[in-house]
Nucleic acid binder design. Structure first.
Length: 245
DNA sequence: AACTAGTTCAACCGCGTAGTT
DNA sequence: AAACTACGCGGTTGAACTAGT
């Protein structure tokens, strides 16, 4: 398949965006929307390629982006989601309103991976000590991670990992196997449908103007009092009931 | 104060894929 | 069915910043 060159090179600017460029992009999208990213820079009068505009908008300028440090809850959520979904940053971002895939990817590589490695070392020692004291047969843990990073996904033993381990057993007990993931991943690819389509919002009793993630989660049966474990289990169970589109 | 090493994060690149002609 | 276009995603890069010596 022949691929169109991304930036038509000649005359197109690269590198950091200036405040003026940001302003042009924002006001253009506010007035006209972004129907066609490729045509947008020309129409808006920007010397950038469409890809660059889209990236700038989705990662930085979008009004619904939450700036600032990640909370501990967000970080834990990322860790849990990463264990379930691997490096599918956009899928992870879809579960964290206001955060972009790029941002999450950066946080993962700069903070969370290190944090996991640290706790891994600590708890690894702990585990060795434990098995020496009580050499009982260990329950085999079923790994659902699709991540190609065995170091972070297979050996982490912090709290979230413990949650995930027991969660795996519960999931197993519920009769959830690999085929479940096929469904979850299918669902993920429909995230846009759930989150962006005004038609579907209307169908579900939402309209896009008053859409909120709280309502969305609520409609999915997620409760505020859920702890990590029951939260994910609920998501699992609800996923099976989601309509296939 | 000057230099170096390490860290962070915005932006780029290339690929896969869905949609269109 | 094949060719093409456009978009979105994940991996990577490099400039800016910070901390340590």
């Amino acid at each position: 398949m022949v691929r169109a060159p991304c930036c038509e090179k000649m005359g197109l600017k690269k590198g950091p965006w200036t405040a003026e460029e940001d302003q042009i992009l924002i006001s253009y999208i506010q007035n006209h929307g972004h129907g066609n990213w490729r045509a947008l820079p020309k129409l808006a009068g920007l010397l950038r390629c469409g890809k660059s505009c889209r990236l700038r908008w989705t990662n930085y300028l979008r009004p619904d982006i939450k700036r600032g440090n990640f909370t501990r809850e967000e970080e834990d959520a990322i860790i849990n989601l990463h264990q379930m979904l691997g490096n599918r940053w956009s899928a992870i971002a879809a579960k964290l309103p206001g955060r972009t895939d790029n941002e999450i990817k950066n946080v993962w590589h700069t903070h969370l991976k290190k944090r996991l490695t640290r706790t891994d070392k600590e708890t690894g020692q702990e585990r060795i000590r434990k098995t020496q004291i009580e050499p009982k047969e260990e329950m085999p843990t079923q790994s659902y991670s699709s991540t190609p990073e065995p170091s972070s996904s297979s050996s982490t033993v912090d709290n979230s990992q413990n949650s995930m381990e027991s969660f795996s057993h519960e999931a197993e007990a519920q009769g959830i196997d690999e085929s479940f993931w096929t469904e979850v991943l299918k669902m993920d690819s429909n995230d846009e449908y759930y989150c962006n389509s005004s038609d579907s919002m209307a169908m579900e009793g939402f309209n896009s103007s008053d859409f909120s993630y709280d309502k969305f989660w609520l409609s999915a049966g997620v409760r505020e009092e859920d702890d990590d474990l029951s939260f994910w289990l609920r998501i699992f169970l609800q996923a099976e009931e989601f309509p296939q589109i």
